[in-house]
Design a protein around this nucleic acid. Structure first.
Lengths: 216, 216
DNA sequence: TGTACATCAGTGAACGCGCGTTCACTGATGTAC
DNA sequence: TGTACATCAGTGAACGCGCGTTCACTGATGTAC
């Protein structure tokens, strides 16, 4: 005789979409408590399921986190792609990609933490689902994406400098700003620039520096 | 009748230098296993002491980690200072500071992880030992140090741009390169630049970009 | 349309473990007389 | 120099807890006839 449903009430024995729900819960908890503070028991409870149910869909905790990281890389790549196809001058579009990166790191800290957590020196964990050579294939795709974006945006090239070189610098600057900000370590104050402004100016300097490099 | 001593053998009931030994052990384990994988029991065992002995010197785990972070900031500041007082042109010395930063992050991953671990949103933990306003006073000192180095190195200024602006950019780039490298996410390969080269070129572009900014 | 059965996604109880922390204690050290 | 005593840095046993994971199970679903 239940005609109504509570907001997150399951109707019945089977959840229906448990795998996706667990991924979302994991992402939320990682965002709130950090990767180390995230717990399978919490995720299961939030979803309304026994902790053991998780093992129908994942090999274990590590596999769930890896899946979160993978989704994160996919979403990040999508966002960067959207920025790349936007309007404006080449430099504007490229700068917008940087802003999309920062926005992703800010809005999806769970994904971001799962993606870029420094892993202890074992190298076994990711070898299973990767093609066997790179630790984070999706990450490399996102990076390749950035490189191609640079080449497409500046088809005249960088006067002998490999586009990947500039791509790494831009990525490192973005990552540095994003992580310092997430850790609350970006100096803040009334006269301090906003992080988006920071990245915009930095990317400008990096790209122009490269464009100018062989003129000097 | 023990005339010899085993390498790390304590002679007697009292350790003599337990606090320092614990800090060093913590730093080592954080480097090996990450901040989350570090355990008081491990540190105590390595030092050859009961876990409970730790509480004579620290309020708890968190306080030990905070002390490691503090020492890290102190050592980093010392290294930066040494680079700043070295020979060469202003730009060379400033670039050397960046290299010192990268070297510190590489050689002291335990310190680095303790210093820059993103903390969950509570804000209470560090308020006790700080003067009450900034989460990481030592970190701010290191940052102020960088700002002053920039001002001293380029006394002509940056044409209206605040030196702190460039300082943040340089710091973020260094931090980004250091953390990507530590996570094994820096694209590597035969044609790929070494991270020191990466930082050198990046800092050059950032500083020159700033010097040139109002000419454009 | 109805029944039998294979498949699969959950349950719930239990496990072993190792963590951070506490407590009453005891062994060593150093100082006063 | 020797003894009494306060101080302090360790011990070791125990704690409560919550974690990831396992196991035999059971309820629901969907397909074949």
């Amino acid at each position: 005789m239940r005609h109504w449903r509570a907001p997150f009430d399951r109707q019945g024995y089977h959840h229906g979409n448990l795998k996706e729900a667990l991924i979302e819960a994991a992402q939320r908890f990682i965002a709130e408590r950090g990767l180390g503070g995230f717990t399978l028991a919490d995720a299961a409870k939030l979803v309304g399921v026994t902790p053991a149910a998780l093992y129908r869909h994942f090999r274990g905790r590590e596999a769930l986190v890896a899946e979160v990281a993978f989704r994160g890389f996919t979403q990040l790549t999508e966002r960067l792609g959207r920025a790349l196809k936007s309007d404006g001058t080449p430099l504007e579009r490229f700068t917008r990609m940087g802003e999309a990166y920062l926005a992703f790191a800010e809005q999806e800290p769970g994904f971001y933490a799962a993606m870029f957590s420094a892993k202890p020196a074992d190298g076994e964990a990711c070898a299973a689902d990767s093609k066997g050579e790179k630790p984070f294939p999706a990450g490399d795709n996102a990076f390749d994406f950035l490189v191609h974006a640079l080449s497409d945006t500046f088809p005249e090239g960088f006067k002998g400098v490999d586009a990947r070189f500039i791509a790494i610098e831009v990525w490192a600057l973005s990552h540095g700003i994003a992580t310092l900000d997430a850790a609350g370590q970006l100096p803040k104050g009334p006269s301090m620039p906003d992080k988006y402004e920071l990245l915009r100016a930095g990317v400008l300097a990096l790209v122009h520096g490269a464009l100018r490099r062989s003129q000097t």
